[in-house]
Design a protein around this nucleic acid. Structure first.
Lengths: 218, 218
DNA sequence: CATTGTGAAGAAATTCACAGCT
DNA sequence: AGCTGTGAATTTCTTCACAATG
């Protein structure tokens, strides 16, 4: 112990912004742009130039002073930091409306995130094929996860079943869970959890609209 | 200028947590619980007791020292802060896979967030009925928004059309936008924007899984 | 005496501002 | 001359710790 400690680890907020820079760089590349700058990235993302630069410094220095960043090169660096295009194998648990929408979500497949298994608890869905995937029963999660190495589980089941399902996928060795159910999920330290909470966003907005009125008097 | 300034405005993070407390209180109420505490809420949300209390102080003091909080009463306070159950009128723009899933998302309708209009640009969808809603052409946004007072727009169109669509709904008077498209959207100050970025969450996880390996050596 | 509400302290994230390269 | 990379300052957010109180 008592090791020296520099500012080493990037905040979660930085990682999420990197994902956005990565996307913008993809756009620039598609347009044939070869060079960009922190100011340009700031413009296209709504963050500040200082923040763009600060975010990048957590991982290295990728630009040339006086010049800027090489689009392809910076994009490649971010791909490597974020680990995109690494043929991630994902399983979808819960093939309801939201689950089905996620199955065909372009943003996943196009970046190396492949849904390779689908599960549901409803007997009438089990055995059916959707987007080329046979739907399995959730009771078979453990067995099938063992065969196919699954890196990430997408959980889109009702709140009351969510913890149970997550326990199963964690038990089966999955190390990342993307949870869409409106429930507080507990996972052990070695598992990473990310929540997408649609109700929360809507309620945030309904609060925010209103408080504008209150603030808008200078 | 040079006005005095107390800590008055709650951070956005607080608002989002309030939404989660609200949900937990709903669960407690359903179980017949009448009383709770910051410690209990902390347990059920994964935040800390101090944070629960701090979050609440931005809006008032709702508990009794030595006792805790009345479930129904605190829930009612949060409902009022978040403005749930106020019959919000929402419009969905983009009736693709994701849009359709959102149309039938229980979390919205059950809390007074009603999708009352649906729009799409594709001629083959216009005129069709889905979940009891007739799909209109996006070109009619302005006209139809004028008739029906729309409080919030849910944007689930491809990134390349997103800004255009948002400009239209903003122009039509909407003051809140929930954007699901992977694009940086600009809105004027009087409009509130919230983004749900699925790719970002997946990339966050793929980064996080990996960095665990690096950190896990003590 | 258990639990709130809150100043004060601490930690984390953002922004400033400028030296250092190209 | 222009843009990066980064210490330092600042702001924002979280946690501590305890007086107040039902």
């Amino acid at each position: 112990m008592a090791q020296r400690r520099k500012k080493v680890v990037a905040p979660p907020t930085t990682i999420r912004r990197l994902s956005i820079y990565f996307r913008v760089l993809g756009g620039l590349k598609a347009l044939g742009e070869t060079s960009t700058s922190s100011g340009d990235l700031a413009n296209q993302t709504g963050f500040t130039a200082a923040q763009v630069r600060r975010d990048l410094t957590y991982f290295g220095s990728f630009g040339k002073r006086g010049v800027g960043y090489d689009v392809a090169q910076l994009r490649q660096h971010l791909a490597s930091i974020l680990r995109v295009n690494q043929d991630w194998r994902m399983a979808l648990i819960g093939v309801g409306n939201l689950g089905r929408a996620l199955l065909s979500y372009d943003g996943f497949k196009n970046h190396g995130y492949n849904v390779v298994e689908a599960f549901d608890i409803h007997p009438e869905l089990v055995g059916k094929t959707i987007n080329g995937l046979t739907i399995h029963h959730t009771r078979d999660i453990h067995t099938l996860f063992a065969n196919e190495q699954i890196d990430m589980a997408i959980v889109a089941v009702p709140a009351e079943n969510a913890q149970l399902v997550v326990d199963q996928v964690v038990d089966a060795g999955t190390r990342a869970v993307l949870n869409f159910s409106p429930a507080h999920i507990r996972v052990p330290d070695h598992v990473k959890l990310s929540n997408v909470d649609l109700t929360m966003e809507v309620e945030y907005l309904s609060h925010a609209i209103h408080s504008l009125k209150t603030i808008a008097q200078t």
